[in-house]
Amino acid sequence: MTAIELITKDDLKNFKSELLTEIKAMLKPSEGESKRWLKSSEVKKLLSISPGTLQNLRINGTLRYTKMGGILYYKSEDIQKIMEDNLR
């Protein structure tokens, strides 16, 4: 005879919570490592630029981007390159 194990709603909630915590930890960049993709708001803050300036950088091809689900993403390496190219 096999034993039957019951799973309660609380068990499922705990599992969900633990799973989400583990996934977030895996997706979070480790210390000293930057995020690979940045959103527009992060780029504007990093470069201290306005939305219009960011749009101009996209239009003139200075800054590459990808669009997913209505959100624009930029590679952190491209942002770093722009910052280094404009060192004075």
Rank of each mutant, 00 (worst) to 15 (best):
S30Q: 14
L27R: 12
Q80L: 11
I49C: 03
N14H: 13
G69P: 00
I59S: 04
I82C: 02
R36P: 06
K44P: 01
Y74T: 02
I49H: 00
E77L: 05
E84C: 05
L72N: 13
L72W: 07
E77H: 06
K35M: 11
E33A: 08
M1I: 10
T2K: 09
N86A: 08
S40K: 02
E22R: 15
D85G: 05
S41Q: 07
K45W: 01
T66D: 10
S41C: 04
D85T: 09
T62R: 11
M26A: 15
I59G: 02
D85Y: 09
E84H: 08
I23M: 09
S17M: 14
Y74W: 02
E22S: 13
W37Y: 15
K13S: 12
M26N: 12
G70C: 00
T8M: 04
E84Q: 12
N14K: 13
I71R: 02
L19C: 13
Y65R: 02
L27E: 12
N60A: 04
K67F: 03
D11Y: 04
R88S: 12
W37L: 14
M26V: 14
L54I: 04
R64S: 12
M68G: 05
V43Y: 00
D85W: 05
S40T: 09
Y73M: 05
P51K: 06
D78C: 06
R64M: 06
V43I: 04
L63W: 02
K81L: 08
T66I: 15
P29E: 10
G52M: 10
N56M: 11
K28C: 05
T62E: 13
F15A: 14
D78F: 03
A3G: 09
S41M: 07
K75C: 04
N14R: 15
